[in-house]
Design a protein around this nucleic acid. Structure first.
Lengths: 244, 244
DNA sequence: CGGGCTCTTGACTCAGCTCAAGATTTGTGG
DNA sequence: CCACAAATCTTGAGCTGAGTCAAGAGCCCG
């Protein structure tokens, strides 16, 4: 662990547009990394956060580049993916508001992070985080918590990729979106599917054609309905759930 | 985070055989969780560790059961897996010596951990770990480091399961074993394949027959050789590597 | 309203699965 | 140390779920 005591000002961040509204600080939201901190510590962290906006398709992190920042998604969705040499792609996670991006243990980013739609991200310099956390171990605990959640989700997805059929994969994905868009424990029955067919394919380890056919199948069986703009409605929740 | 201040003695551990050689403490090994601690802290941790032996096939953790312990593999190999209702299995990770088992953030184990061969594990009560780490944040950092490594490996495996062919999967698996059995940066060219065909299948998201055929294929192409007892020799390293 | 994405659908292929039968290895008891 | 039963592994034959290739339809945005 190298602690670089250097320039903690809001420079040196990945290229994108800085939100002109500087009042919007991550610490203002309860979803950020500082949930476990006191309000004083929170203010301190907030002062060193950078608030940024990315539009759909913009890269936030690049695999192999020096890992300078840790982020928290404030709004929007970020896809985390890896590539094989020949271009085959696998989305290894989706980051929703409250989810952490990057890590403080590695020298380089170990995946690509790309905004799926209009996305707001709060960024901290990893060097600053490391210094600050040394005297505020609650922050380490927060980061550990986020990392552990990501690991659990990865494990679930390994089971999906390795052992589920195309139908089960798509059903699981739709349930995930429903739960994510719902309030508390009540899944949403109508929501926007934020990913394109190709992205869903890259998340589920399938091809775009299989996604399309499987969607058609679900529509024919009246399990889901879809309106223009990828607005999806689950019309037979119990059947969908039983496919997961 | 609930800190249960209770009985820290060596009771309440998962059922198995306690090593009669009580002198063998985890902290004696450099591979344990306490690598970042001072020798004094290490002694303290050591006093609360339980050293246990598991024979091949014995369960160490059971998914869904209360998460009472955090472990470190001292010797042997542990398979971490998840199950679907109908019995389909996916090994989500292999834990080699030095690797951590379990977590301190969740109330229940979220996977099965089973000894692949004769395995020695060092166990700490999660309640004790949480109390101790509050005043020794280096321990949180160690756990974060281990968790982050596991996450990175999971991401690599998601790419493998979602996007690689059977040949590429097996080649990747064999390279992983070679690197793991090698010294430093030099992979071993001859090593024991610790998993049975069915376990390799469950790790790579394939069937036992496909594993067998793919092995035969590698042998026919003189890329590997196999002796009794699953002793494998890589005879054409560059070809194997190019398949990864 | 037109051009470029994105999505769907059809026809065909094929990697990997299933089912089945033997072969080989391993573990155990005498 | 051998015998032999059980477990594990290999191989073949045929099948099938998902991939590939190709064409056309829908839809978004300037």
């Amino acid at each position: 662990m190298i602690h670089i005591t250097a320039n903690y000002s809001a420079t040196n961040y990945p290229a994108a547009v800085i939100n002109p509204d500087k009042r919007s600080k991550c610490a203002d939201k309860n979803i950020s990394l500082c949930a476990r901190l006191t309000s004083h510590q929170r203010d301190e962290m907030s002062a060193f956060s950078t608030f940024k906006k990315y539009s759909a398709g913009q890269l936030i992190f690049t695999e192999g580049k020096p890992s300078t920042h840790l982020g928290t998604v404030i709004s929007g969705i970020v896809k985390i993916y890896k590539l094989l040499d020949d271009g085959r792609q696998q989305i290894v996670a989706l980051a929703f508001p409250g989810d952490m991006l990057g890590n403080i243990m590695d020298a380089e980013y170990n995946y690509f992070a790309e905004a799926v739609d209009e996305t707001q991200v709060c960024l901290y310099q990893t060097s600053w985080i490391n210094s600050f956390a040394e005297n505020n171990s609650a922050l380490y605990l927060s980061i550990l918590d986020k990392t552990n959640r990501q690991l659990n989700k990865s494990h679930d997805w390994l089971l999906l990729l390795g052992r589920k059929t195309a139908k089960e994969k798509l059903a699981t994905f739709l349930m995930l979106l429903a739960v994510n868009d719902g309030d508390d424990a009540v899944p949403a029955l109508t929501f926007k599917v934020p990913l394109k067919r190709q992205e869903i394919a890259d998340f589920l380890g399938l091809t775009i054609e299989t996604i399309s056919r499987t969607f058609s199948n679900l529509k024919n069986k009246q399990v889901v309905r879809e309106q223009a703009g990828h607005i999806l409605t689950i019309t037979d929740y119990s059947t969908l759930k039983s496919m997961v």
